[in-house]
Structure formats: structure tokens, C-alpha cells
Amino acid sequence: MTDLTQAAASRLLTDTNHNRRPWGLLLVAVPVFLVGWLVIWPTISAIARTVWRLDAEGNYGFNLSSYVFFFSDQYSLNNLAITLWTTGMCALLLLVICLPIALYLRFSSGRLPAYVQGLAIFPLFVPSIILAYAFIRVLGPNGMVDILFNAVGLPKIRTPYLTPWGPVIGLVWDNIPLTVLILLAGLGNVANQSIEAARDVGANRLQVFWHIILPRISNSVLVALSFSILGIFSAFTLPYLLGPASPEMMGPFMQRTFREVNDPLNAITQAVIAFGFCIVFGLFYVRSVARNRGG
């Protein structure tokens, strides 16, 4: 009986060893092929189509005029600036909001943290279009907040609806779950022993956070931020529904240039420029993953 099992096990082991490589590569081939086909190829084609195209005389040639237009057009630059401002502001707010939540969840136990975690993950299950309309109902003009304030005799709020703060609030709320989850995973790396050891030698809470916890989770912070930044930079629904008509974020701007202004060339140029910014954050992420794997 034991012999038989052992034989079977070893056969299974050699089988797996023998077959692992080709099958593994084959399994990876599908996603790699899809990424190549649906992401990398369109990117290359977009870049090629904006720099190598027909000129006025009908000859193909190297032409950067659409990029020159973008970077010399104040309206486009304002849109790029508001996108960068929104992204930066969201990243900052996400860090300020999510880090305390993650720390609380990591270092406390019981029923309450479970509820807090459930609440922090909740936005994951709310589609952004529903979030946008709920936002208008609550924070919009004459919304719930105004009604509550009015009931206790306070003045109306200056509503963030249709101002640059509208998308910021919506996007931060939308990105809380992902950020909290990634930070929480990172905090799992912090050993209780090292914190206790630091406490034993007299470190206060701030010192523990600064010297023990932060160095261990800096990688996770980077990953969490690059993830949310990538999503926020190209966000469409929330900036479109909650943001001002002008300046507009790159997502609605691209869509409008393509669809409403019937100008595919400038829309693709805007997309390539947005891609250029996103790739910087993407590289941060790839670098930190690679560093993690190496270590």
C-alpha cells in the first residue's frame, strides 16, 4: 500500500517536472498574446499613426505637428494640468485616509475592525455611475447635506458638484478599497516581534511607525499609489459627471475630441501623451515588483 502510494507520488512528481515547462509557458502564452494584441500593438500603432502620416501634399512622412499643437495650445495644457492636479490630490488624500485605516485594521482585533474593514471595502461593489448620482444627491446643491445643515440652522455648503473637487472626492472614495487592501497586505510583512523589540527599547508610537513600519511597507505604498494613479489619470465617468465643463480631465477630453469634434488625430495624440505619463507610474510599479521578486 505504502509502496504503491510512493510510486504513484513519485510518478506524479516526475510527470509534473517533466511537463511543467511547456505547459506553463503555454498557459502564460494566452495572456501574453492578449496583452500584445490588445495593448501593446494598439499603443505602437497609435504612436506610429501620430508621428508618421500624410502631409498636405499627400506624402507620408515624419510629422510631429499634432504634438506641437497640444503643447502650444493653452486649452489642452489646462486639461493636462487639471488631470495632474486631480491625480496628485487624489494620491495624497488616499494616503492620508487609507494609511490610518490600514494601520488600525492591522493592529487591532475583534468585531469592530471587521466592520471597519467591511465598510472600507464597500466602495469596491458600487459602480461609479451610481456613486456619481448618489454624490449629486448627497453633496450636490440642495442635497442631503444641505437639508441637514438647514435643519439645524447652518448655512448651505459650497457644493463641490461641477467643480474640480467633485471628481477628487468621487475618485478618492472609489479607490479606497484597493489602496487599503494593498497597504494591509504590506503591513502583513511587519513582524509583531520587531515592533515589540522597538517598544522595549523605549520607542514611542511615532518612532515605531517611522523607523519600523514605514521602511517595511514603503514598497506597498508605492504599489498602492501607482495602481490608483493609473486608474485616476484616465478616469472617465466621475470627472465627466461630477467635474466642470472646463478644464476637463484627459479621459473626457479624449472622448470628446474623438467623438464630438470628429478629430481622431488629436484624440490619439492626447492618448499617447496620457500614456506617456502613465508609463512613468507603471515603471514605478514594475520596478518595485521586480525588486520584491529579487529580494
Partner: peptide, 22 residues
């Protein structure tokens, strides 16, 4: 205009602002 020059993002949103008495 509303909010010193804000523009709603669609037909329904304009109706919503009217409905909310804004």
C-alpha cells in the same frame, strides 16, 4: 448662470437641478 457659470453634463442632469429646486 448657476454657480457663476457651471454647465450640467446632460439633459437629465439639467432636469435634476430643476427638480431639486436649485
Amino acid at each position: 448662470l448657476y454657480d457663476s457659470g457651471a454647465y450640467s453634463s446632460g439633459n437629465t442632469q439639467s432636469i435634476q437641478l430643476l427638480a431639486q429646486g436649485v
